[in-house]
Design a protein around this nucleic acid. Sequence first.
DNA 1: TCGCCAAGACTTTTT
DNA 2: GTCTTGGCGA
Length: 742
Amino acid sequence: MTDVLLDDLNPQQLKAVTAPDGQVLVLAGPGSGKTRVLTRRLAYLIERQGVSPYDIIAVTFTNKAAREMESRVTYMLQRELEGLWLGTFHAMCARLLRREANYLPYKSNFVIFDADDQVSLVKRALHDLNIDDKTHRPTGVHAAISNAKNELQLPDDMPRRTYRDEVVARVYKRYQELLVTNNAVDFDDLLLLAARLLEEHPGVAEKYARRFRHVLVDEFQDTNLAQYTLLKHLAGYHKNIFVVGDEDQSIYRWRGADYRNVQRFEQDYPGCTKILLEQNYRSTQNVLDAARQVIDQNRNRTPKHLFTTRGAGNKLVQFVGVDDIAEAAFVVDTVQQYLSSGKASANDFAVMYRTNAQSRIVEEAFIHAQIPYRLIGAQKFYGRREVKDMIAFLRLVENPADEVSLLRVVGVPPRGIGEKSILALQQSAFRAGISAGEVLLDLGRHGQDSPYWQEIGRSAALLADFGTLLNEWQSARDQVSLVSLFDRIISDTGYEPYINDQSDEGNDRWENIQELRRLAYDFQEKGLTEFLQNLALVSDQDTIPSATEQEGAARPQGAVTLLTLHAAKGLEFGQVFIIGLDEGLLPHSRSRDDPEEMAEERRLFYVGMTRAKNQLYLLRSERRSSFGTWEYSEPSRFLDDIDEYLIINQGKRSTSRRDTRLEDMRWSTTTVSPSRRTTYAAPAEKETKYKAGMRVRNASWGEGVVLESKVDPDGEETVDVHFESVGFKRLLASLAKLEIVS
DNA sequence: TCGCCAAGACTTTTT
DNA sequence: GTCTTGGCGA
């Protein structure tokens, strides 16, 4: 009798999945089956313990994790999970707050402000308080407010030890007032308001605590105080809380995450069951050993001994480029070698870096080599101006009080409404004690009969026109589908000709609008409110296809993934390149003076290393371009922690800038054929450069014997070599840099 | 009111 | 080097 739910679990996993009621702390090393344990636990509770999905809440940090968990459990149990609360912390809090909005100064259809909105609101607050935004930069003040919120502090709770504190507290207060008038909450508010709601209204807290017989939490090490408090309340009655995490993978300290919540958990629940998952199913032992040598330098953690049955595997490869271009060239050449030998497909590779700025040079190198790649993060889609415009229109329809959105689109496309008109509108709204949006709607409805028409004066007609549009959209919202509303807005505003000037960029912008429209299509039934919430709470992170999605026929050859170390958490790749292992970059210079920050940099490196299944490449370069000049750096201190016997040093290579420029010129010609890929190739002679029996040397694999060499019609020479170190390899002569020994 | 141009800032990570 | 912001002229 087989048991699909439990049979394939190792003893520790089994113990976790089938743990009795109470508090369970699962410390799961990288690749130890953390997600599997969590999903099986959920399935186990429902299927074997007879717990109704309605009585369970499961929280994650990303939408992707939530989706994956849901689909796996649904598949496993072959049933829908009616009533289950499963989603990100932010989404679960939004759901709670919308339900309990009568306890809050918000209407239940509040909108969620993203980072940009938040900063512009801080700007507004600074302006209102006559504070100079040069000495107190909006982003900095916002960060301080955000930190306070993560610590559950309201303006009056904040310490005021310096003048700066004083300013921040005042701005925070004003900022919060503005949010209320906009009927908007920010990311941090979702957590803060939910936590405080439960704290201040025991009746509400009890309602949810009684309902949720089981609380499940993913990535527990990344919780902040607000989240921890929230969980405590949610699990306050039944006290069945199952958390999974790994202190060593806590990389969101700057967002308020406190890995010590793991220790706090043990103190708060002395009777909790603690389970360590140490068997790794992902990497080779060499990768694990190296990663352990790095992470063992950190203190205040539960030591783990990760092991695998996969064997030692290859050693790590280290490479030092003379500059960042050589560094990128090494990555691309190496990938190229794998691809042409057919040993791997492009989606087996990932290039990871500390800062987004590092991606550009790697991107260029991949473009030149014509290897498809996929860039994760860096605000690719949702940060686009046209996308934000459209979202702002929709948000305005949903919530006319949203002045940030109103100001964004009132003059888009230009319709004769400028600074003066806006000021008149705002003053009029202020006098009437209502929002600017409401004044606009009234102007639209009543035209010259509106009480505001007179006092606004000259621009009233233009404002009224826009108000009319807004009114029409609002009624369309209730009558037609979301996508129809979307189309209405575009045609009413003449948005298409405005952004699409038929240039490449214009078409690109229009494409983005179409993409957003496709997303709206998925919310035809759920409606505008849900759509907007989803837009606010998804990130580009969530666009990373999961392993199962990747295997689909959609991408036959796949693409190399380029992503930050932060974005890499939870993913795995056959071959991983970590670039920029320089002091100042990894660890980042901003972390130099703070031991806690430094420890986090180390964890970040650890997270990156443990993404590798088969091969890990560690790269740095002696100098890299920054702003236009060269910056020189020392090797990262983290490299010193890895024993030499685990590393093969590939030495240096000097792909000079001149080479790349030459490449540029070739690629800019009009025709691009696949054979052009071989620009590095030796002169097109039919004769092979390498002959069977020759002894050759290669920087990575040392010496070997040529077995066979052939030139294809493109002039590309393929050499088969048997190396003493690694055995048979098929190489492109143009890329392999083989040196003839005899 | 709008669009263009120049100066300045920017690079840590993001739900 | 590139993107954003702000100032100025039409």
